[in-house]
């Protein structure tokens, strides 16, 4: 409040959740954003090679993983709503369901990596697969971190902590919806 009694409105007051979580979200988006722009930048030098390597990816599995992750994000958002209503049991169930779908995502991703390894495809195969492993691997590491965070906020269940944990999970979701089309779909 100012001395005149009128509100000193700050845009920061509008921001939902925790400011530090938004700083983390923006920094992660910048890192992945730079990675995806670099991917498309290098693709300019060899579009045919990138298309040939992309054909070795399993688009349908990645599409299923997109559905899994956005549904998981939906459950995390519902968990925030139940936490705000003081329904601890429902909050924990929804967080657990969101985490379980995170595990499904990782299993599908793991099977995809396994299939690539069986065909002798690794991080050094070509530029496409270098970016593929770096970007999807870094994202998968965030999924693991997100599952741990959702577990922790489920234990220390309070509206504020659940909101912060869910925000991290939505960031993981947001990165995937940008990463999926650029790496798996664009021809």
């Amino acid at each position: 409040m100012s001395e005149t009694g009128t509100d000193d409105f700050s845009p920061l007051d509008q921001l939902p959740g925790d400011l530090m979580m938004w700083v983390l979200i923006v920094s992660e988006l910048l890192v992945f954003g730079a990675g995806l722009a670099a991917f498309l930048g290098v693709r300019i030098t060899d579009p045919a090679g990138f298309a040939a390597s992309q054909d070795l990816l399993h688009r349908t599995a990645a599409g299923v993983n997109t559905l899994v992750l956005v549904t998981s994000g939906f459950l995390a958002a519902l968990a925030v709503r139940s936490a705000e209503a003081g329904r601890i049991g429902a909050t924990r169930v929804r967080l657990a369901a969101a985490s379980a779908l995170g595990l499904v995502f990782l299993v599908i991703k793991g099977l995809e990596y396994l299939e690539k390894a069986r065909h002798g495809i690794g991080i050094e195969t070509d530029s496409f697969f270098t970016f593929y492993y770096l970007l999807t691997g870094f994202h998968a590491a965030h999924v693991i971190a997100g599952i741990v965070i959702l577990g922790l906020v489920g234990i220390r269940c309070a509206p504020r902590t659940v909101e912060v944990g869910a925000a991290f999970w939505h960031m993981v979701d947001l990165v995937w919806v940008l990463l999926f089309p650029v790496i798996y779909l664009l021809r």
């Binding site: 845009p11 956005v70 994000g73 925000a167 979701d173 947001l174 919806v177 940008l178 089309p181």
Partner: peptide
């Protein structure tokens, strides 16, 4: 992809309630 990212920002992350951001 841009449309999907907007939905996540506005509804999942709650920015629909923070017009400035």
């Amino acid at each position: 992809a841009w449309a999907k990212a907007n939905v996540i920002l506005s509804r999942y992350l709650g920015l629909a309630q923070a017009p400035f951001w």
